[in-house]
């Protein structure tokens, strides 16, 4: 409710804008738009004018040779460990110190990884996590954008910090939920606070490095991150959608 004021034109415009912006946008709409565009491109490629058969054969053979050469040159497909470290260092340098914790884990454990064709069973994924974080898995699974499925769940340790990491995936889109233990006195910088956004007593923080978007909050001795290459607003929406559930499900440290 607002204080009494005459509804002059400027007030009415402001109220209108506020009301319009209060309408939620479907979480997966942007992804669906991209899918439509991708499907349209694929359909267009398929329906291109056909070539004479000898050209098809020649191009097929040339293509096969090129693929074979590429495989020979680039297997293994994942970069070497030193390349990975260099890449993580270079990208992480663009994020604030505490944001690097989640970002480094995302790149190391989600980007530089081969994925199975089909998503593993939920039971298998949950079994890979400490029992205390089983609830967090459920929260993530329930709140990921439409079409995303959990592909990876694991715990790892780096730089004296324990991580629980869930990776959800849809086609080539990856999104990580990283829960890291919070060291004493650690706090995200106030400059990265998302103004005016609070939910269940939580404040949210945002940062980016190259095209990685990072949203984060602090809870119960943990630092919680959502990292993806989705637009910043969308990435933040995912974080906010699961924040309260995560906070409630995380064990007290």
């Amino acid at each position: 409710m607002m204080p009494d004021q005459p509804l002059d034109l400027e007030n009415m415009k402001r109220l209108l804008k506020r009301a319009m912006e209060s309408q939620p946008v479907p979480a997966d709409l942007e992804a669906r738009v991209r899918n439509r565009i991708r499907e349209s491109e694929q359909a267009a490629a398929v329906s291109k004018p056909f070539w004479p058969r000898w050209q098809v054969v020649a191009f097929t053979m040339a293509g096969a040779a090129a693929v074979a050469a590429a495989v020979a040159l680039f297997v293994p497909a994942l970069p070497s460990n030193s390349d990975q470290r260099n890449y993580i260092a270079r990208v992480s340098a663009q994020a604030s110190y505490l944001m690097r914790v989640g970002l480094g884990d995302h790149i190391h454990c989600a980007i530089f990884r081969k994925y199975p064709k089909a998503a593993p069973a939920t039971k298998t994924l949950k079994a890979a996590l400490p029992a205390a974080y089983s609830g967090a898995f459920d929260v993530v699974q329930k709140n990921v954008p439409s079409g995303f499925r959990p592909y990876v769940s694991h715990q790892c340790r780096y730089d004296g910090r324990q991580f629980v990491h869930l990776v959800v995936k849809k086609d080539d889109q990856l999104l990580s939920v990283v829960v890291a233990t919070r060291k004493e006195g650690e706090s995200f910088p106030a400059s990265q606070l998302v103004p005016g956004l609070r939910q269940a007593g939580l404040s949210f923080y945002q940062d980016r490095a190259e095209d990685y978007q990072i949203a984060a909050f602090e809870a119960k001795g943990h630092l919680v991150y959502v990292i993806s290459r989705m637009p910043a607003e969308r990435n933040l929406q995912v974080m906010v959608a699961m924040a309260q559930g995560l906070q409630e499900s995380l064990p007290n440290l």
Binding site: P6, L7, N11, L15, A19, Q23
Partner: peptide
């Protein structure tokens, strides 16, 4: 003049009651 004791839902509902041509321009 009228006060601002209006929720977003009130405002959207009023907007919906405008004839479409006016609503689009507004």
């Amino acid at each position: 003049p009228i006060p601002e004791h209006l929720t977003d839902e009130d405002i959207l509902a009023a907007l919906d009651r405008l004839p479409g041509d006016y609503r689009a321009v507004v």
